[in-house]
Structures are given as structure tokens and as C-alpha cells.
Design a protein around this nucleic acid. Structure first.
Lengths: 310, 310
DNA sequence: CTTCGGTGATAACCGATGGTTATGACCACG
DNA sequence: CGTGGTCATAACCATCGGTTATCACCGAAG
């Protein structure tokens, strides 16, 4: 196994140009460098290879056998790199013109998504939207790991200073119970009456959001009973039916759960939840992100006093 | 046309290694560089391409789509370069193990060449000798332009300080004439009697060697008449037959011309000529050159007091 | 024979690059 | 809650790759 040292693409480009011109000064002009710089680099390449590539003569240069041997490979190297750079460039532009929208569940809410989409597409006709449903284990719905560029999520978000958002809705909280649950008979429920109920909880990794849906701040320090962990709509529905526990749910999400056998009731004593479109602060300047956020504000009929944050 | 900037092969090697390890620290170890250096270089490559190649995560790194796209091309670039370097290396070793022997005419002289070859091959069995006949326009028989590594030539050599040599023979000079020439009747000729004869001369480019064979130093400042220029044995023979002029010839080269119709006679008043094996001083350390010179010394029965020079 | 124009090589210099070690922020794990 | 692993950052330094100015060389043209 021969150990070959690395080469700078520039040196090969210089070499090929000199090989084409057979003239250092002219090649230097074509390359927009000074002739001494070119001479030195070619010399360095020769030293690196341990062989002369050109014979310097009065009226220019001539390829040595070694130079002759190298030339086609040098061209191949440059060509391969050019193709690689182009391939990357394509990915780059493709990803610059597609926006991935993360969501934990369907946003629903009376055609919110189509409304945003049509506004967004009007502003950015060339852009492509990809929706991506993300497991509830990730409270940022894909923002954290770069899977999504923007995301429909519930506050609070962990790592608060890495994200910005605009509020879409502030919704009262209801409790979801199996029809068979004793409390299901009541028209409205005090959260105090739920303190001893087993709760369905988001995975640990959801951090403060898990606490939020357990209404930790309304429990006065007493730890909740966890009936099961849930990471998706269907899971939750099945867990409710199975009587593993109850759970809080935003008013706007109620339709996702009330498929039969499950009821929801208003809850007193729990603050409303805020549903937001969020993005990484790093991406705040990306045109597609800005455009989507703007589309979202207007679609949610901005001006109702809903604030951006943080 | 997209303008792609150059890339250093090292950066691609770093990239490929990280892509294989998916782990900066391990990759840095494999590459024998520090982890910060690797991080910085990858970052630089990403900045150059304007795109992230890896997503840094807790337990290592993962390729982004752009990185995924680049990887195969990066491998192709490295591979192409590896092949190119190998090709050059082959040329290098080939040329290091072949010795090109330049000569203006066949050295003849009773099997000199086979004797040198056998001695040389005994010392360097792996080496290959290539003989190369060079036009008389080049008095260094190919040393000057690199066509030959060693050469059998006549002194004086131009650019004296660029070459070294070992003397093979010091031979008396004769004059070659057509049989029909009046002077051909004499057994021996004074050079004074040749002063007005037209001479066959080497090309201008032969420099001092041309003057030598015109015996300029024996003419006392009177310019010679040039009957024709000659650049090869057959040319010379034909020119002599045609009566275009006479010419001086070393005793050892007489057999090359006396094919019929041409005679040679000893000349008084012209110093003997020295036939040498010469090489570029730059090459004085090359093993093959040294070995050939040594073989030449012994084959010419060194110790007869023939000096090396300069 | 000298001058002149054009070749590539060399020198002196300077900012950028690519490496080092030391350190930090972060997070998973006992 | 330390501890050990990740990658990133900082400060520093030698080398690299470029510049301009200049040289040595040689062929062509006065």
C-alpha cells in the first residue's frame, strides 16, 4: 500500500492550465495569479511528487513523461470535484426552496393549515411545503434535531432562547375521560377533583411540556400519578378507552379524541394553553421561514392581540 | 456555468473519515490530528460549500442530505488522485531504473558498448539501458535537453561547468577525402595543406565542437571555407563522395566513413581529440549514472592515465 | 556587438491557513 | 451531583500561498 499525500485542487488546476498553455506566464494570466506564484506552486507540486512535471525551455514549457502521465488523472480529479460541488449545490438549493413543517398532531382548527398554505404559496410560489408528523417525545416537533424548519407546537418549549414563535391560538383546557368515568357525568370539572386521578403523560423527554399537560403548577407540589405514557393520538385514545388514566387536552384538539367512548369536559383551575408556530432563532432570517410565519399570523387572524415570542 | 472553488484533498479525506466514523473524536484519532483541528477543517469545508455536512449530536455526528450527496464524489476525487499519484510514481521509478545513453554516432571502438553494458548490468541488474542516437546539431548528444542521462561525446563541450565526464579515448585525427581527391595520393598530410580546402562542418548550434573539428585553433585566425553542414554519418559520407569538402575525423570513427570511395589519411599539426562519457553535474549522485560511468572507466581500461573532468 | 523584450527563477515580505494545547458548554450516566 | 464523554472555542504559532521587485538568460533586432 503506497502512502499518497493530499493535493490541493488548486495545484492540479494550475498544473492543467500550464499543461494546456505550455507557457507559465500565459497560464498565470489565465489563472489570475502572478507568474512567480504559479512557478512556486508548480515547483511545490513537483517536489511533492518527487518528479519534474515540466521541462522549462526558452520559449515556454514542455510536459515530461511524468507530467504526461499525471495530466488525465488531474483532469479527472477536478471533474469529480466539480460534479461533487454541483451535487451539493443542488441539495442546497432544493433545501432552500422547501420548508419542512413539523407537527405533533394535525393542527386541525377549521382549515388552518390550508389557509396558511395558500397564503404562503401566494407569497412564495416556487417553494415547496413538506409536512412532517413528529413523535410526541420531541416537544419541538422536529425543530431541535433539524427535521423541521417550522413547527406547530404547544408552549412551553424547552431551551426557550433557541426558538422564536408566533401565537396561533390560546385555548381553554378540557379533560378527556372515558365515557364510563364517574366524573364524565359532570358538565364541568374542578381540577382539584382530578388531583388523584392517574394521568396520561408525555414522555420524559418532553420536559416542561410534559409538566404543563400534567398541570404541575396547579398541583401545589403534590406529584401526579402517571397512568401511562403517550406519544401519539391513537395511543392516547386507546389509553383513555382502556381506563389507564385521564388527560388534559386543548379545546382545539378535542375532535381528535372524541371518536366514541371518550368524552371531554371543561376544567376549572387550569390556565389556557398557547398553540404557536415556532422556528429556530438561527433560521429567523431565512426567507421561507419568515414567509411561513407571516402567512400563519394572518391566517390566524392576527390582531386579536396574540403576541409573538419570546 | 457554476464557479466552483478549489478544495484541498485533505479536507475531503477528513470529511470521508468523519462520514465513516460518524464521530469527530474517533475520526481525529484515525487521521492523526487533534479533534479541534478536525472540527475546524470540517467547519471550513461546510462554510466553503455554504451548507452543513454533518448534524452534530450528543453521541457523535450524522450526515445531512448535503453530506450524503457529497460523500460518493469525495471518494471519487480521492480515488482519482490516488491513481494519479500512483501513475506518476510508476513513471518515476521507471525513469529511475532506466538510463538513456546518448550518442552522436555508434561508439564502435571494438565492442566498447557491449563491454560497458555487461559491466553495468553486473552492478545494476535491475536497470535498463536505452540507447538514443542524437542529431549532431546537439554537441551534448542529448544531455542538454534531458533526452539522455549520459552521453558519448567529443570534447569540447559547451557550457562546460554544467557537465562532468570521464575520458574514454584520446585519438589522433585523420582527414577524410574522396578517393578522387589529389591529396588522397599522399600517405600523410600536413594540416597546412588543407587550409584552403572546403570543410564539412557541424551545424552552428554545435558551438565550440564545430570549431574543434574545423581545427580552428590550427588556422591562425584565417576563417575556414565551409563546403557543407553535416549532422549525421550518412550525410557526411555522401557529402564526401559528392566532393563538397573534406573533414577531420577521429581515428576511432574511420570505419564509419570508409565504405568505398572515401579514404582517410593521418594529419600532422592537429591535436588529438578526446572522446568522453559525459553527464550532467546535477545527476552526479544518481546511482545509475555513477554506475555507468564506473563501468565505462573500467571498460576503457582505466589506469591508462585518462583523466576525469572537469 | 550591443540592446531589448520576453522567458522562468529568486528574494523579501505579509496575511491567511492549518495545526497545536488548554479550556468550555453540554449532556448522559452511575 | 460528580464524572466522563461529546464537540466547540480560544490563544498561539509555523507554514503556506500570494504579492512586488528583481535577476539571469537568451534570441531577435538594431
Amino acid at each position: 500500500m503506497v502512502m499518497t499525500t493530499d493535493v490541493h485542487g488548486r495545484d492540479l488546476r494550475y498544473f492543467v492550465t500550464v499543461a494546456e498553455e505550455l507557457h507559465f506566464t500565459r497560464a498565470a494570466e489565465r489563472l489570475y495569479v502572478s507568474q512567480p506564484a504559479l512557478s512556486k506552486q508548480i515547483r511545490a507540486l513537483e517536489r511533492q511528487l518527487g518528479v519534474e512535471l515540466f521541462r522549462r525551455e526558452r520559449q515556454g514549457a514542455a510536459l515530461t513523461p511524468a507530467g504526461e502521465a499525471l495530466l488525465p488523472y488531474a483532469r479527472r480529479v477536478l471533474e469529480a470535484w466539480e460534479e461533487g460541488a454541483t451535487a451539493v449545490e443542488e441539495v442546497r438549493t432544493a433545501q432552500r426552496s422547501t420548508l419542512v413543517v413539523g407537527m405533533s398532531t394535525s393542527p386541525g382548527r377549521g382549515g388552518l393549515l390550508p389557509a396558511v398554505r395558500s397564503r404562503f404559496t401566494a407569497a412564495r410560489p416556487e417553494a415547496v411545503i413538506r409536512l412532517r408528523q413528529v413523535n410526541w417525545a420531541d416537544p419541538t416537533a422536529g425543530l431541535a434535531d433539524g427535521e423541521a424548519d417550522v413547527a406547530f407546537i404547544w408552549l412551553p418549549v424547552p431551551d426557550q432562547d433557541r426558538y422564536a414563535w408566533t401565537v396561533i391560538a390560546e385555548e381553554p383546557v378540557r379533560v378527556a375521560l372515558p365515557d364510563t368515568h364517574p366524573l364524565a357525568a359532570r358538565a364541568e370539572i374542578d381540577f382539584a377533583d382530578l388531583l388523584d386521578e392517574p394521568f396520561l403523560a408525555l414522555p420524559e423527554s418532553a420536559g416542561p411540556l410534559r409538566d404543563h399537560w400534567l398541570a404541575l403548577e396547579a398541583r401545589d407540589g403534590r406529584p401526579p400519578r402517571i397512568g401511562a405514557e403517550i406519544a401519539g393520538t391513537e395511543e392516547t385514545y386507546e389509553a383513555l378507552l382502556a381506563g389507564l388514566g385521564v388527560c388534559l387536552v386543548a379545546a382545539g384538539n378535542v375532535p381528535l379524541l372524541t371518536l366514541g367512548g371518550v368524552t371531554t369536559r371543561p376544567v376549572r383551575g387550569v390556565p389556557p394553553s398557547r398553540y404557536v408556530l415556532a422556528w429556530r432563532k438561527d433560521d429567523a432570517r431565512r426567507p421561507l421561514v419568515r414567509a411561513y410565519a407571516e402567512a400563519c399570523r394572518t391566517a390566524a387572524r392576527g390582531g386579536r392581540g396574540l403576541a409573538d415570542g419570546p
